[in-house]
Write a protein that binds this DNA or RNA. Structure first.
Lengths: 145, 145
DNA sequence: GGGATAAAGTATGTATACTTACTATCTGCG
DNA sequence: CGCAGATAGTAAGTATACATACTTTATCCC
């Protein structure tokens, strides 16, 4: 019995395929972003003015990792950080104009990618797979933020 | 539209859940192995005497990463490396007795884990999800090694 | 049989990921 | 009010991941 043919391992491989496609398409259109950086920026777009902890919660990261992600986005001039006035521990993160523009320009590419990741599935299977993914993660149960 | 609700992102989260469960269960039974290290060892069990490149191919890794994984397994005394006699570039990797014993002891735990990863799905859904995973990765098309 | 080419491995650099520990701050409660 | 516990962030350490470049060794082909 090959254990590397089991769900845990297959999920890893699909994740690998997913990030690989992201890097390739991003490079093609000349965008220097990882999928994680993109997810963080997208969370900032839909939730302006949140702090790092909330970004982490939205995209399911731990605090330590998100710190580095935001730091790299800041270095690229795509986001800005400032100490929250309500809570001096918290750092409020905001997209810069550059960041917003890049995000808007790049979003269609990322949308298109989603189909490519599951290219071996037909449309009905993709829908099914997505529904199962959401259910496996118990997403429809939690607050839709 | 929240892009972090799309397949690419959901796959990442499920992968995260998967590795998290692995770490937790491994710790519970006192086994110091990551899911990747386990996958490598399992590949070595089913394919004795292969070199690093073949391990990488079997579990879909790149050479650079597998080098580190094997190195850590070697440091723990679970595998041994030796220069191949057929090809002096290649390093043949083998499970040690300790490694084989640990693998055998730990395998049932890993098997049980697979269900837990998809705990929110019922049995029929899990089967369906698995089939879609395999299809998305085009696994049944390639040689089953 | 010797050079072009390819393959195995390592090294380096960057980017996740997560744990634990530490600092700074905030909040709740007596 | 005052402090115990919780929270935001950073730091340090380990382990993936992958690209690129470099070394060593095989192989292919003329």
């Amino acid at each position: 019995m090959k254990l590397y043919g089991m769900p845990g391992h297959l999920i890893r491989r699909l994740h690998q395929r997913s990030t690989h496609i992201f890097q390739e398409r991003a490079k093609e259109v000349g965008v220097d972003l990882t999928s994680v950086q993109f997810a963080a920026m997208d969370a900032l777009r839909t939730h302006p003015g949140i702090d790092q902890a909330r970004v982490a919660a939205l995209i399911a990261y731990d605090r330590a990792t998100i710190g580095g992600v935001i730091e790299r986005l800041e270095r690229k001039g795509l986001v800005e950080r400032s100490v929250s006035e309500q809570d001096r521990r918290a750092r409020v993160v905001q997209l810069t104009e550059t960041g917003r523009a890049l995000l808007e320009e790049f979003t269609p590419t990322v949308s298109a990618m989603q189909e490519e990741i599951l290219a071996h599935l037909d449309e009905s299977e993709r829908a099914q797979f997505n529904a199962l993914l959401r259910k496996a993660l118990d997403l429809d149960a939690e607050a839709p933020d």
